[in-house]
Design a protein around this nucleic acid. Sequence first.
DNA 1: ATGAACGAGTGATCTTTGGGGTCG
DNA 2: CCGACCCCTTTGATCACTCGTTCA
Length: 941
Amino acid sequence: MKATYGSENESLLESIHDDPGTLAGISQEGVNRLLKRANRGSSSRKKEQNDLKTNEKEVVQTMVAQNDSNAEDCSRDGIGSSQLEVDVKSRQDAVFDDMEDMNDSDWEDCSIPILDPVDHSSNENFKGLTIEFDEPSSSIGRKPVRRASAEDKELAELVHKVHLLCLLARGRIIDNACDDPLIQASLLSLLPTHLLKILEVSNITSKALIPLVTWFHNTFHIRSLVRAERSFRTALAFALETHEGTQEEIAALSVALFRALKFTTRFVSILDVASLKPEADKHEPMSRVANRVGGGIFSTSTLMVANPREVSIPSSPVKSFSCSEKGNHCENSSRSSCKSKDGCSTSDGPHSRFSTDVDELTDKTANSFSCQAQLDTSGQCAPKNSQGLKRRGDLEFEMQLAMAISATTVGTHENSAGSSDVKVLNGSKSLDASTTKRWKRIQKVESATSSQGLSTALGSRKVGSPLFWAEVYCGGENLTGRWVHVDAVNALIDGEQKVEDAAAACKTSLRYVVAFAGRGAKDVTRRYCLKWYKIAPKRVNSNWWDAVLAPLRELESGATGGVHVLEKLHNDVLNEQQKIKASETPGACSPSNHVLLPEKSGQESSKEYGGRIEVESSANYSFVNTRNSLEDMELETRALTEPLPTNQQAYKNHALYALERWLTKFQILHPRGPILGYCSGHPVYPRTCVQTLKPRQRWLREGLQVKANEKPAKVLKRSAKLKNVQVFEEEDYREVDTKETIELYGKWQLEPLHLPRAVDGIVPKNERGQVEVWSEKCLPPGTVHLRLPRVFSVAKRLEIDYAPAMVGFEFRNGRATPVFDGIVVCTEFKDAILELLSSIITRQKLNSYYGDGSSSKASSNMHYNNDEISGLPIKSSSRADMQSTGPQKRGREDTMSSAPSGRLEEDHEHVFLRENESFDAENSIRTKRCFCGFSIQVEEL
DNA sequence: ATGAACGAGTGATCTTTGGGGTCG
DNA sequence: CCGACCCCTTTGATCACTCGTTCA
């Protein structure tokens, strides 16, 4: 495994050079680091297990040897030996755990009492040992279950996030390359003249795109390549030149073409990231993650076959056929890379194109998957006879191919059977039934072979998955226009609802579908995902993701749905003229301004200051401005209209729906309805009906109290054994008392907290003489919370009634201890307290500036004075003040006080940790405390 | 093949207000 | 005798979640 991963890492490193963009580089570096760390962890874990086993064996062997030597005198007849070994093993198993951490030095050379095998049956000790043997032996049969630790999860999340960022960066790079004017111009120059008529369509529809996509699909082909070190733009140019490329490149070319034709177009990609949860990779070693990184971020998927030459070419009598039957393509195969029986194509030269013969293809695929991927640039391959025994590589390749075909064909079938909006190109005959059957067969084969340890199959399941496509904004669709899914690679138009199934068939999770435009990005997963409840748990924390996407969304919106500020200003100047012309063409860009050599991408067409394009961009301003909000609404609507899941489990954390059985003990349905449907006979309620309940005391913390005469919405019985141990001992016959109930209330039973008002300067306190200040709302009316140092002393000295303010609990020494911070006093005393505190501060200042002696003396005076004022010893400055050696920290602050210096020579240097600081915002006084108890107050400028 | 039910393991969350000895 | 201070010791119950197994 390690070796595999190592090679993957190397390819990963190589691929860094692919895009020398800083972000990509940095991201890649991050990924590598994480992967290395992860690999280390996982390999070390594996190593642990291996070591465990190895150690075990060694220990057993050693001990057996030892025993042998020790039992030299024992009779060694063959009858007892096997039993002896078993028994010895049992002991070793029993002591193994303890031995794990011990060094050899920990072991004394001593004889292990081994009884004569003949006699052991009569020995009681031995019997005991034999019993111990049964446990580990039975556990051997059990699968070693190692659950993911918190660290594993954290690591997996980190990898997931970094991977996401890398893929985002990658998408932006590709998107940017699609805007390349030269590439766009070259594409346009390739375009047949008759297809240019599409530019005359004012409001483009998905239907109008069919000839264009057909041409593109017939012109450009997928080929899996060994990547050379080059930028994506170069790769794109190369793909353009050779008409072949990776799925990513071909998809990018299609985007570039649409943009060249002035269609508002996005490059859309499934970000196939490493799993958010460590368990997902449990059975797929990190090599697969690395592989996916290599294949997903910096190149398209690669065939997981070590030596491409090992892949045989099935020798069914195919003169040619297209793997992209019915317009669908498998990634690692294309018609151009399919080899004739007696020839191998070379990668550099243009490949001959073969006409698609679906019927023939059907036969071919039914017999065997006789399509050969061109696996490397050399394109060399050795034709082989499929009749013979297939090697692993053959088998695997066929599986990949089958999956790819199956995946895409499913979508095709649904397309053809589906709505009229769905267009299927290049297909005349449905292969679905047979392909589906094949798919199932192949799946069986796959599971069978993988169980045999077919390592090369790792990662290959994702082959064929639709990972890249385009979204073209079709103004002629619906009333308002909409984004249309255009997968030129697979010749699919408007097949958004097929993507999920196709991806699922290739084991690709549709967790993140991101559309790129204008160097920005937008999450459009909702458009392609019907079962969001399956996706949501696999996605990263939405806050983080939204924050990451926020700036990119603006860029994307600016490119596809809005107008740049400068353009808007410019357009404002020409407002009158625009108004006149705006009413003429509210749709997409004008075809009449089409030029073969575009100066800008479709998104930036409005930058072209000339004639109608400019006018249109302005005219579209309000229109396109709503385009994004319309799309947001569309995605939002999809989010709110998810179909009811059919299995109960799915309701457990469903965002929209709930089953009563999955409610937690602190939840309740209120109101109980409406019932949206039933699942296995259980009524389904909207999630909005699920209310969280809390005890009365808990609501108080939030400044809410239960209304009068409200009965608890739920009463829980809680075992209180520990609490009532003493009670129980005293009244052990009252078992009922060992249970206590918790009365829970819901939000609808609450009202704002009404605490008794402070009267006559007396603070209302609880039974402990405190005020619990969980928030400002918990303060009794007429009181104020003062969180000032020494305020206790001041209040006491002024003989003002106060209550310690309890702000929470902390666990210390295994028990909860209340945390106090400041005091609560009646509002009328606030000024008096602050005044006195202020006077103390002033006195300190005067002392420090004009007092006889050094500032240190003044400082010591301060503390002394404080104590004097309060008449009470102040803990924080009691001992330490007398022992401190001087202030250790001076910053920009104006030091109001400094510690006494040099009075006592001690080694201790004060350390003022930030968490020990308190800050009085009103007076801008910061109190810093050393752990020794020494404190210092500074006024911040 | 799928899903329900169940059990086991794990991590997260909730809990929530000292007491005895020593010294000045 | 009283009050201040130090030291002790670092919970554990419960819930939610996940995964594996079994069974229908």
